[in-house]
Design a protein around this nucleic acid. Structure first.
Length: 448
RNA sequence: GUGGGUGUAGCUCAGCUGGUAGAGCACCGGCUUGUGGUGCCGGUGGUCGCGGGUUCAAGUCCCGUCACUCACCCCA
């Protein structure tokens, strides 16, 4: 039965060698998160629609789930696919609160779905990696530093281009605006957030017209928003603007602690900055906020972000504050794979192709393969007893680095088909160099 | 959701003012009766997105539709 297929936009599928890269990235992230004591959880793909919409965000395009036989609708009525990992996590915390220990640290690496128009770095199904710490009733500030620090280390360990963590603090912004006497804090924040699209004088105009600021106040807001440094010198620069407010002081202290904590130990490929125009929309953030950008891929906007939310979840009696950050695995990886910056070293796990001389002696080859596997060397036996040239080419096409030849006298030879070097070898003891044992992530120089 | 672009071989594309389909790469075979990558020769492969219209004749013109894609919006 011939079936004509058409690609489904926004639902990316990787070929095996690219999947090697994605799997390694997920494994590496998991390793770092676990190194810091974060437990893994996986939530179900669906949530009740009212939970999904409870976040208040309007235009989230939620995919609804529906049975073909609607008259038999039961408990699966009114559910949709989750569009991020935070909403399901908040629900998970409430539902399992009685069985969790707080503060609860968890990481979650799963797909999410959004029915929006796909573009580079933006898909309808995408994988993201979240780390959060949640407390019951209270969550000390030092967890802000902890969780951001974990993501800094996790991304520092990944084979991707350098990333930049740009931190700000909502208390700092709100305190500053309040101290300044701005009438409409929310609109002001949202307006300042447009700085990357509109020129500063345009933003100043909007602050006056929309947020009710005087032109003097608008000017101060812009001065604050243009402060961007990679150490704690922003504290003095903000103070120099002459605004006094308790919340501002708190925000300055917190931001300084986050920047200091994340820069400690000088990460190799991660830079950390205080960027006082990062606002992250309105949302539910109440303190630390962060956006993550990847060098050479600024056009993707942020590849990750997060922050502090004092009310991640609440059941009316108990409130669960949280702090977390997420990294867009699909968002960053798929463009890198498409550009050839990242690639898998081969499309199959096999490190060795055991050649078959004739179908009558295939058993010999099977024995060799069994010996190799017995000490952990992934291998496969040739599909047919073609000419050796064909069998070598089969291996080459798949990126299998070694071909094994059995010989009439019972001895064996293994050939490295990249160098052409061929040596006698014993299947019970021979192993390839570690780098050849499993497919590797290969990172090429950026060709932008 | 709004606006632009594009749909021809597995992939990248050519096809002038309408005359009945091409290239490169890939794939298969041979030169090369058992050790590949280069070279030469040959071969397989197309409802020209789908539907309708104009015409003696449509990949080409017109209408519709679907898909993909880019920008806006939003975000990972």
């Amino acid at each position: 039965m011939a079936t004509k297929t058409t690609p489904l936009s926004g639902f990316p599928e990787l070929l095996p060698s690219a999947r090697v890269v994605e799997r390694e990235v997920i494994a590496s992230l998991s390793r770092t998160f676990e190194l810091h004591g974060f437990a893994n959880i996986e939530t179900r793909a669906v949530e009740p629609v009212d939970v999904l919409l409870g976040k208040g965000e309007t235009s989230k395009e939620v995919y609804l789930l529906e049975r073909l036989q609607k008259e038999q609708a039961g408990s699966d009525a009114g559910v949709g696919l989750h569009f991020d990992l935070t909403v399901p996590f908040a629900r998970y915390v409430l539902e399992h609160a009685g069985h969790l220990e707080f503060p609860f640290r968890r990481f979650q690496i799963q797909p999410a779905w959004r029915g929006e128009r796909p573009q580079e770095g933006r898909y309808r199904q995408f994988t993201q990696a979240d780390v959060d710490v949640v407390g019951r009733d209270e969550l000390p500030f030092h967890h802000d530093v902890e969780v951001m620090r974990v993501m800094v280390e996790a991304l520092d360990a990944l084979p991707i281009p350098p990333v930049s963590f740009q931190f700000n603090n909502r208390k700092l912004i709100q305190g500053f605006y309040r101290g300044l006497g701005l009438p409409d804090l929310e609109t002001a924040i949202r307006t300042i957030d447009k700085l990357d699209k509109l020129p500063p004088d345009k933003v100043a105009e909007l602050l006056v017209s929309d947020a009710g600021a005087t032109s003097e106040q608008a000017q101060r807001c812009l001065e604050l928003a243009t402060i961007r440094v990679s150490d704690t010198s922003f504290v003095e620069r903000v103070r120099a603007l002459g605004v006094e407010d308790e919340l501002l002081d708190e925000g300055l202290a917190e931001l300084a602690a986050v920047v200091e904590g994340c820069s400690a130990g000088a990460p190799a490929t991660v830079t950390v900055e205080a960027n006082l125009r990062i606002a992250r929309g309105l949302d539910y953030y109440t303190g630390t906020v962060v956006e993550i950008f990847m060098a050479g891929y600024e056009r993707l906007k942020s590849v990750g972000g997060g922050g502090r939310y004092d009310a991640l979840a609440t059941d009316g009696r108990t409130t669960y504050p949280g702090v977390g950050v997420s990294f867009g695995v699909s968002r960053s990886l798929i463009p890198l794979l498409a550009d050839g910056v990242l690639a898998g070293s081969r499309a199959v796990p096999s490190a060795v192709l055991v050649a078959v001389t004739t179908e009558e002696t295939r058993a010999q080859s099977d024995l060799v393969a069994a010996s190799l596997r017995a000490h952990g060397v992934p291998c496969e036996v040739a599909a047919s007893a073609q000419k050796f040239g064909k069998q070598i080419r089969y291996a080459e096409r798949r990126g299998i680095p070694y071909v094994w030849f059995t010989q009439d006298d019972g001895t064996s030879q293994v050939r490295d088909i990249r160098s052409g070097e061929q040596v006698a070898a014993d299947p019970d003891t021979w192993s390839p160099p570690t780098d050849d044992l499993r497919p590797q992530v290969v990172m090429k120089e950026q060709q932008q």
